[in-house]
């Protein structure tokens, strides 16, 4: 594939990803509302919210927080660009991690106890899902002998039949990144939680909007990684179905469970995630998958 085409797709990705992300958030809210027997907000509501936030007064608790907020957005966008350029999957993930750490540091740079606790919990959350995300790449590399996304496109055969265990582990990660029950620990989706959206309590106005947009990027990036599991072959459109399907499963789980505590989350994600991926790696090495 030509370089020009790749760069073009990267530009398109940067523009389209937040649109998809916002749209998915809108549909998410609508579907959740319907599951609860409500009408719910209009599908475009997330965009209205962000536009309204941009129109608000610029108010910031500390300059450092601002820098970290921007760093978060920039790094996430960079990760998306690298993904679109079909670069090394490890590079994409590590840039993503760095971005998330900046978000937590941004929260920790403010003195508000809510923000502090939120930042602390975000780090714990990070501790819970990043190892799984990182480990999930290993079976892919084992299968294809390369960490490059381009290789997945070139391989010519879908990954899901071999790597469905890792895929399930990634679903847990998706739930955490989307901040859904039972994992909405650091900043609950609705502020009805002891920390009042701890992580972003101290962000307001346009800066909150930036964080929101970065979340959209993050979600789309993660869904794309899930989509990689069936990106080739004649049924390439299955990749979109898989990504949206897993997104829908997370919505369902969100609606049928209560929020749990961080200690439980840490235990669950580590035990479930690592054993799933570990057995996947084992099975690949044994030649069963």
């Amino acid at each position: 594939m030509s370089t020009g085409w790749l760069i073009g797709s990267a530009v398109i990705a940067v523009i389209v990803a937040p649109l998809i992300g916002g749209l998915l958030r809108g549909i998410d809210r609508k579907l959740t509302a319907h599951m609860q027997g409500r009408i719910g907000p209009p599908i475009m509501q997330p965009f209205y919210d962000v536009i309204k936030l941009f129109g608000k007064e610029r108010c910031v608790a500390g300059k450092a927080q601002l820098v970290f907020g921007y760093a978060y957005l920039t790094l996430i966008v960079t990760a998306v660009v690298f993904f679109a350029l079909r670069q090394d999957l490890l590079v994409v993930l590590f840039i993503l991690f760095l971005g998330c750490i900046f978000l937590a540091i941004g929260a920790l740079s403010v003195k508000s106890p809510y923000s502090q606790l939120g930042g602390h919990r975000e780090l714990l959350q990070f501790l819970a899902y990043e190892p799984i995300l990182l480990l999930a790449v290993v079976p892919i590399a084992l299968k294809l002998q390369s960490f490059r996304i381009a290789t997945i496109f070139e391989s010519g055969q879908p990954l899901l039949p071999h790597l469905w265990l890792s895929f399930i582990a990634l679903l847990i990660v998706l739930a955490i990144v989307m901040r859904k029950s039972p994992f909405d620990i650091s900043s609950s989706e609705h502020a009805h939680q002891e920390l009042v959206r701890g992580l972003v309590t101290e962000y307001a106005g346009p800066y909150l909007a930036l964080i929101e947009i970065a979340h959209w990027y993050e979600m789309v990036l993660l869904l794309s990684i899930l989509g990689l599991f069936w990106v080739v072959g004649s049924l390439w459109w299955l990749s979109i179905i898989i990504a949206l399907g897993s997104w829908f499963i997370i919505l369902i789980v969100d609606n049928i469970s209560a929020r749990l505590t961080w200690s439980w989350m840490l235990r669950f994600t580590w035990v479930a995630g690592i054993s799933l991926i570990g057995s996947n790696i084992l099975f690949i090495n044994l030649g069963w998958m």
Binding site: T32, M35, Q36, S181, H190, H192, S257, A258, R259
Partner: peptide, 16 residues
């Protein structure tokens, strides 16, 4: 109570 546990759907169901 359901809401404080982050169980929004149960909250809505009970209020329904």
């Amino acid at each position: 109570l359901a809401d404080s546990m982050g169980f929004e759907s149960l909250f809505m169901q009970i209020w329904r």
